[in-house]
Amino acid sequence: MCGATRGGPSLDGVDLEKETVIQGIVTKEGEPVGNAYVRLLDATGEFTAEVPTSATGQFRFFAAPGDWTLRTLAPRAATVDRVVSAQRGSAVDVEVALAAV
């Protein structure tokens, strides 16, 4: 996608004063992964939500301020955990790079 911004989906229309956004893109060898699953675990490691990535490898959660773990599963890739700290006011935007197995 020529000219696409690296990272999560566009934040147009998202009220960052009200929402605590955790989003990003899943890649493998630099290419977006459109068939990954991203799980959001709370600070105690408990499952909170899960989304499949879009065709462009992107995902988004509406969470609450605090520490979270993003656990990413994808075909032919090792599972990756990423700890993020979310707050209201600015979106957390991460790139989850998967290693092929």
């Binding site: 068939n35 699953y37 499949p52 599963l73 994808a74 075909p75 032919r76």
Partner: peptide, 8 residues
């Protein structure tokens, strides 16, 4: 469906 997809 998830398991099916993750198994390719």
């Amino acid at each position: 469906r998830k398991k099916w997809e993750l198994d390719s």
